[in-house]
C-alpha cells in the first residue's frame, strides 16, 4: 500500500510537470504573438506614415526630384506590364512541367534529375537569378534592361513555385478519376485536358497567385539586371502599336517597378522621400496581402467544397 508521503511526492511531481506545460503554452503563444505583432506593427507604421501621401495625384504622377510632387505612375504601370510577361511565360511552362512530372514521367534517372533540380532551384537566392539574367538576357540575348528581361527573370524565379503547386493540385485528384477516364478509352492527353486540368485548376490558381505575389515584391534580381530607377515616362501601351511589329514595342521599353521605386526613395536621406517610400511600401504590402489573402481564401474554399 502506498504511503501518504509517496502520494504527496508524486502529486508534487505532477504539479511541477503541469506547471512546465503551462509555462511552455504561454511561451508558445508569446512567440506566435511576437511574429504576428511584428507584422501588425510593420503594417500600421507604414500606414501611419504613408497613407497621408496617398492621393489621386500620387498614383498619376511620375517620380520627381521634389518629394511632394513625386508619384508612382511609372512604377505601378511597370509592375503590371512586367507581371504580364511573367504570368504569360511562367504559368504555361510551370503547369506543363507539373503535368509532365505527375502524369507522363517514367520512373527513371532523368525524372529524378528533373525533380532534384526543381527543389534545388527553389533554394537558389533570388539575386543569383538576377546575375543569370544580367549575363544571359541583358548581354547574350541583347534584350537590354527591358520589361521583357525583368518579366522573364521573375518567371524563372517563380517557376518552381508553380510547378510544385501544380503537382500538389494534381496529386489531390483521386486515382479513380484517372482510371475511369482511361477505362473509357481516353488517351493520356485527353485525360489530362478533360479531367485533370479542370479539376486541379483551382489549386493551380492558388499556386500561381502565391508565385505572382512573390514576384511583385522581388527587388534584388531587378536591380541586378541594372533597371533604371528614374523613369518619368510610360512605355507604349501593350498591343497598341502598328501590327505586327509595333504591337510588341512595349516589351523592350525601359521601366521601373514598385519595389525599385520604393528602394530608390528609401535610400534618399531626405525625410520627405522616406514618407513617399512608406506610401509606396503601403501600396506594395497591400497588393501582396490582397493576393496572398485571395490564395488563402481560395484554398479554404477548395478544402471545404471538394469532397471526392
Amino acid at each position: 500500500m502506498m504511503k501518504a508521503a509517496d502520494l504527496d511526492a508524486i502529486r508534487a511531481i505532477i504539479t511541477r510537470a503541469k506547471r512546465w506545460d503551462l509555462i511552455f503554452s504561454v511561451l508558445g503563444i508569446l512567440s506566435l504573438m511576437l511574429g504576428i505583432l511584428t507584422f501588425v506593427v510593420l503594417f500600421i507604421d507604414m500606414a501611419i506614415q504613408g497613407v497621408p501621401r496617398l492621393s489621386y495625384d500620387f498614383f498619376t504622377s511620375f517620380p520627381s526630384r521634389r518629394a511632394e510632387n513625386a508619384g508612382i505612375l511609372s512604377a505601378w504601370v511597370g509592375t503590371i506590364l512586367v507581371m504580364l510577361v511573367t504570368a504569360l511565360s511562367a504559368v504555361p511552362l510551370g503547369v506543363a512541367a507539373g503535368v509532365y512530372l505527375e502524369e507522363y514521367a517514367p520512373k527513371n534517372w532523368m525524372t529524378d534529375i528533373i525533380e532534384i533540380n526543381i527543389s534545388n532551384l527553389a533554394g537558389i537566392p533570388s539575386i543569383v537569378y538576377g546575375l543569370l539574367a544580367l549575363g544571359l538576357f541583358v548581354y547574350y540575348f541583347g534584350f537590354g534592361q527591358s520589361i521583357l528581361t525583368a518579366g522573364l527573370t521573375l518567371a524563372l524565379l517563380i517557376l518552381p513555385v508553380i510547378i510544385v503547386a501544380t503537382r500538389e493540385a494534381i496529386r489531390a485528384i483521386p486515382q479513380s478519376i484517372h482510371e475511369g477516364s482511361y477505362a473509357c478509352g481516353a488517351t493520356t492527353w485527353q485525360t489530362v485536358s478533360d479531367h485533370i486540368l479542370p479539376y486541379s485548376s483551382a489549386g493551380i490558381l492558388t499556386g500561381v497567385i502565391i508565385g505572382m505575389a512573390r514576384a511583385i515584391g522581388e527587388t534584388a534580381p531587378i536591380i541586378t539586371i541594372g533597371a533604371l530607377t528614374f523613369i518619368a515616362f510610360l512605355p507604349t501601351p501593350p498591343f497598341a502599336g502598328d501590327p505586327p511589329a509595333g504591337m510588341f514595342d512595349w516589351i523592350f521599353a525601359p521601366f521601373t517597378v514598385m519595389p525599385i521605386q520604393m528602394f530608390n526613395w528609401t535610400s534618399r536621406p531626405e525625410a520627405a522621400f522616406t514618407l513617399n517610400a512608406a506610401a509606396a511600401g503601403f501600396v506594395l504590402v497591400f497588393m501582396t496581402l490582397a493576393m496572398n489573402g485571395l490564395a488563402i481564401y481560395l484554398r479554404y474554399q477548395l478544402r471545404k467544397n471538394i469532397k471526392w
Binding site: 510593420l42 515584391g217 534584388a220 504590402v285 501582396t288 496572398n292
Partner: peptide, 19 residues
C-alpha cells in the same frame, strides 16, 4: 498569418528595419 509574414516583400522589411 504566418504565411502572410513570409509573403511581405523584403524591401518592405528593409524599410522597417531602417526606419
Amino acid at each position: 498569418f504566418l504565411e502572410l509574414l513570409g509573403g511581405v516583400p523584403t524591401i518592405v522589411y528593409g524599410y522597417f528595419a531602417l526606419t
